[in-house]
Amino acid sequence: MTPDILAPLAPLRRALAKSLRDRVAGADAEERARTIWGSAGPRWFTPEDPIWRVHADASMFVGGVRALLLQSLHPLAMAGVAGHSGFRGDPWGRLERTSRFLATTTFGIIAHAEAEIAKVTGVHRAVVGRADDGRPYSANDPHLLEWVHIAEVDSFLCTYQQFGGTALTAAEADRYVEQSAIVAGKLGVRNPPTTVAQLHARMAAYRPELRATAACRDAAKFLLLDPPLPVASRPGYGLLAAGAIATLPGWARRELRLPPPMVLWDAPGRLLGRVGAGVVRWAMSDPSVANRREPGTAA
């Protein structure tokens, strides 16, 4: 379609872009964008790097939902979320903090990235307790940190390859996992995977530990069926959630009591996810936000 045909949609595009940016980046988005993009100094990554391409794409909106569902399947990780994150009371605050971390560590200068990592590590020190089965947990436990990391990397890579721009080559996908390992290692993950094959092997190694607890299923219901969104925004969010569900592995869907892998479910789900990511990509390429990247807001 030509720009003239799309012109009547410009107000809708701007409104959608602002709504998405406010949800993801928060009230200080402008100031944070100036800090990330205006600061001089060396950066870990460049626009040519796979991690930049993946984290700047609209498919991150689908990947974020998928990652949260996967992460919740570790009972100790879920216990930490349920006991300390306030995900029900302040879900957008949690999303904003995650967005800030990803944006700063991916696009920002090294000094700011390392400061953000130190801040997160400090917050994690207070996230300790016991799960319902009596086992202790700590958010700085390297084993739990690794699960959170690999669930994110697997989700972001999977949804980018399904719903992103130009898919990564096999070598680029390995490079993405390797680049993600830089941040993970500084957070406290020991020997994070650096290739796709290693990533899949680590995911499989965690499988015996993973199951859906009552808190996990409650979180999934909140995330998928009762998100804290206005009624008008829920259909669009549903597109992203459908894409996330369609790309989950079968065992995870069975644990979460979601539709099993079947062409009947997955083909429409992937199509909906592609449409949802496309709408986000269109909105976030609006000139009012296109030069202020956050995860998922790429240019």
Rank of each mutant, 00 (worst) to 15 (best):
T98K: 00
R100E: 13
A77S: 14
L68I: 05
L102R: 06
G80D: 13
S85P: 08
T105E: 11
E96Q: 15
V81L: 14
R94W: 12
R88S: 01
R97V: 01
L73H: 05
F101R: 04
R100N: 14
H84E: 11
F87R: 00
G83W: 08
L73R: 08
H74M: 04
A67I: 08
R88N: 00
S99E: 07
T104A: 12
A103R: 15
L69F: 13
L102G: 10
L70M: 14
R66T: 04
A77T: 14
L76N: 11
R100T: 15
A103K: 14
G89D: 15
G89W: 09
G80I: 09
F87E: 00
F101D: 07
G89H: 12
F87S: 00
G86F: 01
L73S: 10
R97S: 11
T98N: 02
P75S: 04
L68F: 08
R66C: 10
T106D: 06
H74R: 03
L73Y: 08
G89M: 10
L70R: 04
T98G: 02
P75K: 09
H74Y: 05
G93E: 08
G80R: 05
L95G: 07
L68Y: 03
H84V: 07
L76K: 11
L68R: 04
R66S: 09
T104I: 15
T105V: 15
R94E: 12
A103C: 15
M78W: 12
P91E: 06
G89N: 13
M78S: 10
H84C: 07
G89Q: 15
T106N: 09
A82N: 11
Q71T: 11
G83R: 11
L69P: 06
L68A: 10
E96Y: 01
A77D: 02
Q71Y: 03
G83M: 06
R66N: 08
R66K: 14
R97H: 05
R100G: 12
S85H: 06
H84N: 13
R97T: 05
S99F: 07
R88I: 01
H74G: 02
S72T: 02
T105W: 08
A103T: 15
F101I: 06
A77E: 07
A77F: 11
R88A: 01
D90W: 01
R100A: 14
L68H: 02
P75W: 09
R97E: 08
L73F: 08
G86V: 00
W92H: 11
S85Q: 07
L76Q: 13
W92P: 04
S85I: 03
T105Q: 05
T105I: 12
S72D: 04
L73M: 14
T106H: 02
H74C: 01
T104Q: 12
G86I: 00
L69K: 09
L95Y: 02
L69Y: 13
A77M: 07
G83S: 10
D90E: 14
S99L: 05
L73N: 10
A79E: 04
R100C: 03
P75V: 03
T98Y: 00
A67D: 04
A103Q: 14
L70F: 01
E96S: 13
R66E: 11
T104R: 13
L73V: 06
T104Y: 10
L73K: 09
L95W: 02
R97M: 05
